[in-house]
Amino acid sequence: MKIDPQLLEFAKSMRQSTTDAEHLMWQVLRAKHFMNLKFRRQHIVAPYIVDFYYHELSLVIELDGSHHGTNDAIEYDAERTKFLEALDLKVARYWNHEVLGQTDVVLEDLWKICFELKQTSP
């Protein structure tokens, strides 16, 4: 399936303008620093662009800022998660303030998720 060139360009631009939480998480996940897993950032799962993705475990990591707390955003995120889960992707969501203020708690939770997925993957 060919990916829309505009979506590719948008994903590229998103990689260049990350939030502080995305930047911190990328420093942890990049270059197999976390559990020796190769994550991608701003990865396209058409029609969406997910924050982080690990193909071998079908894992999506989404980081949410305060604007995700509005009713419209909650509904949108629920639909998006439902779509991704219908593709057999596991979605882990963290708030930006958790990533920035409780990094160790977020990484411990993510470690548990990855460990469980590794145990059940073929």
Score class of each variant (00 low, 15 high):
residue 103 T to S: 02
residue 116 E to G: 04
residue 15 R to F: 06
residue 82 K to T: 14
residue 6 Q to F: 11
residue 115 F to I: 06
residue 79 E to G: 13
residue 20 D to A: 10
residue 72 D to H: 09
residue 60 V to K: 05
residue 28 V to L: 06
residue 118 K to L: 13
residue 88 D to Q: 13
residue 14 M to R: 14
residue 48 Y to T: 06
residue 114 C to W: 01
residue 13 S to P: 12
residue 116 E to Q: 13
residue 52 F to C: 06
residue 21 A to R: 02
residue 48 Y to L: 10
residue 89 L to W: 07
residue 9 E to N: 12
residue 29 L to A: 05
residue 60 V to C: 01
residue 104 D to Q: 09
residue 36 N to M: 07
residue 31 A to R: 15
residue 83 F to V: 04
residue 118 K to G: 02
residue 51 D to K: 07
residue 93 R to W: 02
residue 101 G to P: 13
residue 83 F to M: 06
residue 16 Q to T: 07
residue 9 E to I: 05
residue 6 Q to E: 15
residue 73 A to D: 07
residue 28 V to G: 11
residue 18 T to V: 09
residue 26 W to Q: 00
residue 47 P to V: 03
residue 112 K to Y: 13
residue 21 A to W: 03
residue 39 F to A: 02
residue 81 T to K: 15
residue 63 L to N: 01
residue 85 E to N: 13
residue 90 K to I: 10
residue 18 T to S: 12
residue 4 D to W: 10
residue 113 I to N: 08
residue 44 I to C: 00
residue 79 E to F: 01
residue 80 R to Y: 03
residue 2 K to A: 00
residue 20 D to T: 13
residue 103 T to P: 08
residue 75 E to I: 05
residue 103 T to R: 09
residue 109 D to N: 12
residue 34 F to S: 00
residue 9 E to M: 14
residue 74 I to Q: 15
residue 97 H to I: 03
residue 106 V to H: 01
residue 57 L to P: 01
residue 25 M to P: 05
residue 60 V to P: 01
residue 1 M to C: 08
residue 35 M to T: 07
residue 61 I to A: 01
residue 89 L to V: 10
residue 114 C to T: 04
residue 122 P to G: 15
residue 113 I to F: 00
residue 47 P to F: 10
residue 49 I to W: 03
residue 37 L to A: 05
residue 1 M to W: 04
residue 87 L to K: 15
residue 30 R to K: 14
residue 83 F to P: 08
residue 63 L to Q: 03
residue 104 D to F: 03
residue 102 Q to T: 11
residue 106 V to N: 00
residue 83 F to K: 15
